[in-house]
């Protein structure tokens, strides 16, 4: 997966959680939670969807690595390279 594929995967998952999520003006370097009004329960859904879709095991300690779209790319890039 390319960086933009990974970003799209995350946005698809968020759109699935909240079908009214507004991605216009989203800053890839800023926390997703603040920009999209996601709470910690919604956030766990992103982790669980990644696991369901790509069999990715993300330990709890690594959750902060998914805070922004850019950090998602950094963290998930190597894990999703083969997909």
């Amino acid at each position: 997966m390319t960086a933009s594929d990974i970003k799209q995967v995350i946005l698809d998952i968020i759109a699935d959680i909240d079908d009214e999520a507004d991605f216009s003006g989203l800053d890839a370097s800023k926390p997703l939670r603040d920009q999209l009004d996601l709470d910690s329960m919604d956030f766990l859904d992103i982790v669980m969807e990644l696991r369901k879709r790509y069999k990715l095991q993300i330990p709890e300690a690594d959750y902060p690595q998914l805070a922004t779209l850019n950090s998602c790319v950094t963290y998930l890039g190597p894990k999703l390279a083969a997909i």
Binding site: D18, D39, D42, D45
Partner: peptide, 12 residues
């Protein structure tokens, strides 16, 4: 009201 407990629950 997206942050209301009821709507958060339904999303979950």
């Amino acid at each position: 009201d997206k942050n209301a407990p009821l709507n958060r629950l339904l999303r979950q």
